[in-house]
């Protein structure tokens, strides 16, 4: 589904991704872990198409297409979803209105007919059940005055409604207590299928107790330096990142 080859990106003069490789197949859950400043969020932003990052080399193939050539909204319409680490507050636009616009803009892009109000509402209510989100939250201005947990749950709800092929969760666990974490993870697990894939970007192992990854990668200094299975995450939790640095021949 996704094949990243030798990806390099910078912000201003600062190189952040320095030749990153990653392959994700349908039905898989990949976790990307790494210390602060390794480039985890940069990877998420570059995949979603944020203009503040300049891609200086490498390729990203998504379902046979050059993802880097597409505008952010085109990537979304083709099935890439980024759950933001810091969801943006949009005063004056309710979640419902926002998602109705998003769904229909994507359908338009894909040459599909717009959903009418009845169809939309039916689908919407079903997704609300999956994520266990309250109507009153959805009528409020998007993310405005939401708690950290509400913002993250709203991200997962948006993911449910937009039904992406590839979901990238950027530190969705940050700032969440264990109950909120569980709810968010449950939502993600319910949405998992053989046709979609998830990349979970996280600093801590605890989210992976709830969203069990098929593969775990360590991102360090802009590259994937180690890959393994879920046991690698446990090892990182226990031993920290220093041993990885040592393996790379760095003095700690």
């Amino acid at each position: 589904m996704l094949k990243i080859s030798n990806l390099q990106a910078k912000i201003g003069d600062k190189e952040i991704l320095k030749g990153l490789n990653l392959e994700v197949k349908a039905g898989e859950v990949h976790a990307i872990m790494g210390p602060n400043g390794a480039g985890k969020s940069t990877l998420a932003s570059v995949l979603a198409g944020r203009e503040t990052y300049e891609v200086t080399g490498g390729e990203v193939d998504f379902e046979g297409e050059d993802l880097l050539e597409l505008a952010p909204e085109e990537r979304a319409a083709k099935g890439v979803f980024l759950a933001f680490q810091y969801p943006v507050e949009i005063p004056g636009v309710s979640t419902t209105n926002f998602l109705k616009t998003a769904v229909n803009e994507m359908r338009k892009y894909r040459g599909e007919e717009a959903m009418d109000a009845v169809q939309f509402l039916k689908m919407y209510k079903e997704k609300m059940k999956i994520v266990n989100i309250d109507q009153s939250l959805l009528n409020r201005s998007l993310n405005e005055g939401f708690s950290g947990g509400e913002k993250k749950r709203n991200e997962i709800f948006q993911m449910a409604v937009l039904n992406p092929k590839l979901a990238i969760l950027d530190e969705t666990d940050s700032g969440l207590d264990i109950d909120a974490l569980r709810i968010v993870a449950e939502g993600v697990n319910k949405l998992k299928s053989a046709d979609n894939a998830t990349i979970v970007i996280t600093h801590y192992q605890r989210l992976l107790d709830f969203i069990v990854p098929d593969f775990v990668h360590v991102l360090y200094k802009g590259r994937i330096v180690k890959s393994g299975t879920k046991e690698l995450a446990l090892e990182l939790e226990e031993r920290g990142y220093d041993w990885i640095k040592e393996e790379l021949g760095e003095t700690v």
């Binding site: 909204e73 979304a76 933001f84 949009i90 998003a102 994507m106």
Partner: peptide
């Protein structure tokens, strides 16, 4: 950008 990332032109 947030809106674009949700498929809104």
């Amino acid at each position: 950008f947030y809106m674009q990332a949700r498929g809104i032109s």
